[in-house]
Nucleic acid binder design. Structure first.
Lengths: 191, 191
DNA sequence: ATTAATGGAATGAACGTTCATTCTTTTTAT
DNA sequence: ATAAAAAGAATGAACGTTCATTCCATTAAT
């Protein structure tokens, strides 16, 4: 691992270009250019564009997960834990707009659908804290009796939508609004 | 204007291919093929692909608006009107998955961002019933005091997310679940 | 200490493919 | 017979990927 230099530059360039212009607005030649690297060099680090896209996704997912877990305590109430997660997600998206835009591009593409299908059909990961949280909320009867995926939509649908609006400049989220929107999501969720 | 035949076939083919495969999975040649039409013929009806994409969007938007207005009474309570709109949107998306998928593709693309920016900066349309509804809810103090775009995210973010999950097969929405999810959205919205 | 040899990393021109659009020919309608 | 409409082959631009070559750091030989 003594050569993160070029690989890192390639990943950074890909993130920026894809986040801003989408997968099809980020040709390999442009990524190479922005990374300060020859076009062929990318293929020394990534087998092809698909692999690059997927590896970048995994890196961002990991970064986000780390942020979410920071200060997360499984002992707190369901409500408190939800507010922690919601706040962390929203703050992360707002202060890392490139990451957020990339994740959105990914999720709204065939890559994302495949990824999601795999995830849902697979066993509950240790890292799948949402699922755990909602399952506990259900068994404690503090949140509405709905299928897990719907609870997820109810809780995070508005947050993602609001984060997008903030990044696109349609609204300006401050601390007060963040607290309010997350409280509103909880109102939708709680029994 | 006595030749809606071919134009219609082209639009239908474009809708289906773009909804299922995205803009980049729907080459003009393929659209022509599916429409049973020569590739060049498309250009007799649409100046270029962009125009085709935008005109199709406008048609779908119009269709949806018609559905929403059906049975909509401005005299009912804010809550009742919201439930009417939410139910109508959700039902429309579920029973017209191609339309829904197309609208999503559009919104999650540069086309959609431009469109949205125009809409928000423009004057309130007569047809902009959401805005009217939320403004009235605000002045009557029955819904939370948040910026309009955030109310929109809060109300429709979950519905769109849930419609997508239904269409992708991650959940199966029946009448009971539809009622419940819309009630939950209202819980998030109401003061 | 200097030079020669080696091998992996990097390069970017070139290739084959795909696509939107245009052009030419053929068909249809009047 | 003429003109409008339709068809699909042709065109050129853009893209992902490959590969022959160059560069550079390290090692071996003198």
């Amino acid at each position: 691992m003594a050569k993160p230099d070029k690989r890192d530059e390639i990943v950074r360039a890909a993130l920026e270009l894809i986040a801003e212009n989408g997968f099809h607005g980020a040709p390999m030649a442009m990524i190479a250019d922005k990374a300060g690297v020859g076009a062929g060099t990318i293929y020394r680090y990534f087998e092809n564009k698909d692999v690059l896209i997927n590896e970048l996704y995994r890196e961002l997912e990991q970064r986000l997960l780390t942020v979410l877990m920071d200060g997360y305590s499984p002992d707190k109430s369901v409500r408190e834990r939800f507010i922690h997660l919601g706040t962390a997600v929203l703050r992360y998206c707002i202060s890392n707009p490139l990451d957020f835009r990339y994740l959105e591009q990914f999720h709204n593409s065939p890559y994302g659908v495949v990824h999601r299908r795999d995830k849902i059909s697979g066993e509950a990961d240790d890292k799948d804290i949402y699922r755990k949280l909602f399952e506990e909320g259900l068994s404690r009867q503090v949140i509405k009796d709905l299928p897990l995926v719907m609870l997820f939509s109810l809780a995070f649908g508005p947050l993602i939508s609001v984060a997008r609006d903030h990044i696109l400049g349609f609204v300006s989220l401050d601390d007060d609004l963040i607290v309010k929107i997350i409280a509103a999501c909880w109102d939708g969720l709680k029994r």
